[in-house]
Design a protein around this nucleic acid. Structure first.
Length: 435
DNA sequence: TCTGGGGTCCTAGGACCC
DNA sequence: TCTGGGGTCCTAGGACCC
């Protein structure tokens, strides 16, 4: 019988915090918290902050006093910096194992196909120390027969003192014991809603989930749930995705620094978001056919009422030309905008993405299209080299009052250029999903 | 007056992840 | 006072066709 191959999950510990610590030694022995785009929530916590009981995505204002009491460094996020460290970690893995076995799953995680070796603990220790030495990022490594079990192995590796960052559940007789000690909520793919369903059916631990009939689970958790049961039983349902995949959508959405109500201000913000999203799209040589615009009022202050609406424009042709897509976006905006409201959040999504080379020719304006396409690429290059929006369309005004706040940003100009929005990076630019 | 049923496509909404 | 952002996949249900 052919032995099931082992899957490893390499996951960076407290990734954003670890990046900040790598570039600022003063943060090594202090609690550190990294904030979301608008300085609103905490999205990465050092171990000390976790021990204070601060949960992921906690609003800063709720825990600010507590954090200050413990001398916590509070830092605005810097996605350009994290992207660079992500690339470094990935490069170490590819150097060590080859690019045929690495799936970059997210900015701070990679699945690996590591074959059928006996001494996985040694491999894990090796990867962990090599990555730390070459990138200064601490990682944890978990091994198992399926992605779902590798996720669990990794989670235990992170928290168990005995495991010390590396856990092999592939060559281990203790998988069932680990499952018995794991709340079903902590299984990958089981969120709070699904966990509530499962608990209603008397399924509380991962072990109980493993021993349930997948078909029964399917009736209320659908194919995802059934797949998870199989994976817990060591049956691979989620293959490694080694090859780069193009994004299916590209979005740029923001909460405003304060609410805004004028059509002109909203339109300017939407044009700005569109510009950023199109840069990323063109960087990946893609074009779009459908744009979606959404507007939302403040959900925590629903006066006169909470409003959230979206509209999609479907074009006949694919395009990557800013001026043309501004027109599509304007159509959407006119559909969703209501003058009596004050908006807190807005965004655009580009979808039905196709590579520029493969889009069909236009009947009457093909020459024009190609000219504009080249011009757009040229503007991107100039802006990348000399700074964001050095060249821009007249329709796009300077940033206005809708701008996000970023009070605690580390002083690092190199990372505030357009590059961070492009999903850049040399090796892995396409498959990267942004946090 | 009687008023099918199977297939396909599309979309809004829900759930999840990091 | 202050509450993130970028993705993916799945399903139910409606529209439409024959």
């Amino acid at each position: 019988m052919v032995k099931n191959r082992a899957i490893a999950l390499v996951d960076c510990n407290n990734f954003f915090v670890s990046c900040e610590r790598a570039v600022n030694k003063d943060l090594q022995n202090r609690p550190v918290a990294v904030l979301s785009n608008n300085d609103g929530c905490i999205i990465s916590r050092s171990e000390e902050v976790k021990k204070l009981g601060v949960q992921m995505a906690t609003p800063l204002f709720q825990v600010r006093e507590l954090l200050e009491k413990y001398n916590t460094a509070i830092i605005s996020c810097n996605h350009g910096l994290y992207r660079e460290f992500s690339d470094k970690v990935q490069n170490v893995l590819v150097e060590d194992l080859g690019d045929k076995v690495v799936e970059l799953y997210s900015i701070d995680e990679a699945f690996l196909d590591v074959g059928t070796p006996d001494k996985l603990k040694l491999l894990g220790d090796h990867l962990k120390s090599k990555i730390l030495k070459e990138t200064q990022i601490p990682v944890s490594v978990g091994f198992a027969t399926t992605k779902t079990l590798a996720k669990l192995a990794n989670k235990i590796a992170k928290t168990s003192e005995k495991a010390n960052g590396v856990l092999d559940l592939y060559n281990s007789p203790y998988t069932d014991l680990a499952l018995q000690r794991t709340d079903v909520r902590n299984i990958w793919g089981v969120g709070s809603r699904y966990a509530a369903h499962l608990k209603n059916h008397g399924i509380n631990t991962a072990y109980e989930l493993k021993n349930t009939d997948p078909e029964q689970i399917r009736s209320y958790l659908h194919v995802f749930g059934a797949r998870t049961v199989m994976e817990l039983n060591g049956i691979k349902c989620l293959p490694l995705e080694i090859t780069e995949k193009d994004n299916k959508s590209i979005a740029h959405t923001r909460t405003f620094g304060h609410t805004i109500s004028s059509f002109c201000d909203i339109k300017n913000a939407i044009f700005y978001f569109t510009t950023r999203a199109l840069e990323k799209m063109r960087w990946n040589n893609l074009s779009t056919k459908t744009v979606t615009v959404f507007l939302k009022t403040d959900r925590f202050n629903p006066v006169p009422y909470y409003y959230s609406n979206a509209y999609s424009y479907n074009s006949v042709y694919h395009s990557d030309i800013t001026s043309e897509i501004y027109k599509w976006v304007t159509v959407c905006l006119e559909k969703v905008f209501r003058p009596e409201l004050r908006y807190k959040r807005a965004g655009i999504v580009l979808s039905e993405l196709t590579s520029v080379e493969s889009i069909s020719l236009r009947l009457y304006e093909q020459v024009n299209f190609e000219r504009w396409h080249k011009l757009s690429k040229l503007i991107d290059e100039v802006n990348l080299r000399y700074g964001r929006d050095i060249i821009k369309l007249a329709a796009l005004q300077d940033k206005g009052g809708w701008q996000s706040q970023s009070t605690f940003r580390s002083n690092d100009e190199n990372h505030s250029t357009s590059r961070e929005h492009l999903g850049l990076g040399k090796t892995f630019s396409k498959s990267v999903r942004f946090l």
